[in-house]
Amino acid sequence: MSSRLPSLNALRNFEAAARHRSLTLAANELGVTHGAISRQISNLEATLGVQLFVRGRRPLELTARAATFLVSIQRGFEIIKGASNDLLANTMQNPLRINALPAMMSRWLLPRLHSYPDLDIAFSMATIVEPVMSDVGEVDLFIQAGPSIAPRTRSYKLLDYEIVPFCQPETVNGMPPPRSVDEFRHYALLHFLSAHPVSRPFSHDLWAQWAEAAGLVIDNQVMDYFPTFDLVYEAVLQGKGIGIGASLYIEDDLAHGRVITPVDIRARSSLAYYLVIPEAKINLPKVKRFKEWVLDQSGNSLTII
């Protein structure tokens, strides 16, 4: 008798055939052909050096040694199934770990989480556009600006990045809000400038992109820089100038009149927000559930990059 461990696939084929007492029914259950089942059983008999079925009997009849073997095999499969279920349960009990850019997290994702069925989530903040994928062991998924360039990841488009200026509805720099693009030159322009060199071009270009769409020259414009969008927003509320950012960041504030868009001109950024999932995490139930939910919230289908 060989000491080599039998093929797990051969054992599955044998167990199904023995349980059904039929090669045809076993083949139907496993989605293979009658011949494939027969070959797997023949290979298993060769590996074990033992005849498993009495030849020429219909329905199939196990030999005495095979009947004892079947009980042990079925017990083994139950142990494997139980261990898998325990592992899955432990995985589900751990919080879903999401890494996202701060403004996206606080201004779009968090206000929507009341509709998410599982609130066991742990957040970490990204400070760069493309997250460091060495964090993959600590993070289940990323929400970032732009698709991932890292290997072994899948990117799903969530939202376009539409750039819009906004200001306090009553007083800006001690004056009423501007009524035209030409009047912007009288006001301080506020925007966030990331301290990280990778994401700095992304944050720095917002006013330039919008100004190009609006026909505004801002070469000599007064600029006030802040490290985060939330600080820009607070400065806007204090009337320190006109802010710039993604429209999705201020949609609730616009609806409630806390801020206004002084002119109705918006610019489409070259970037967009993406859900990025490491391939090692793609089939985790908690990741699949969040992916379906967040894509539904964004109104996008499964667009894979």
Rank of each mutant, 00 (worst) to 15 (best):
S7E: 09
A235L: 03
D182V: 02
R57N: 09
H256L: 09
A89H: 05
K288C: 06
L8R: 12
L284Y: 06
S84N: 11
V232A: 01
G31M: 12
R19G: 05
I282Y: 02
L101T: 00
T303L: 14
S194T: 07
R289D: 13
K286I: 06
D182A: 15
L248F: 11
A27L: 14
L284A: 08
S155H: 04
I41L: 11
E15N: 05
K81M: 06
V132P: 08
E45Q: 15
R39T: 12
S203H: 06
T91C: 05
N28E: 15
Q168M: 08
F123G: 00
P59M: 00
Y161D: 14
G299V: 08
P131F: 02
L254S: 04
I128T: 15
L8Q: 12
L193F: 06
S22F: 15
A267H: 01
F166I: 10
P102G: 04
N300L: 04
K240L: 07
P201G: 09
L101R: 00
A267N: 00
V136W: 09
A46T: 10
W108T: 03
V263N: 07
T171I: 14
P197W: 02
A26D: 02
L193P: 00
N99Y: 04
L113I: 06
S180T: 15
S199D: 09
T261F: 04
D205F: 04
T303K: 12
Y187D: 07
L30Q: 13
R21Y: 05
I163D: 01
K286A: 05
S298N: 01
Q93H: 11
S199H: 10
K286D: 07
E15S: 15
L158F: 05
L23N: 15
I218P: 00
N43A: 12
I260L: 00
H114E: 09
M175G: 05
N90L: 13
E170N: 13
I80V: 15
F184Q: 02
I80M: 10
S38H: 14
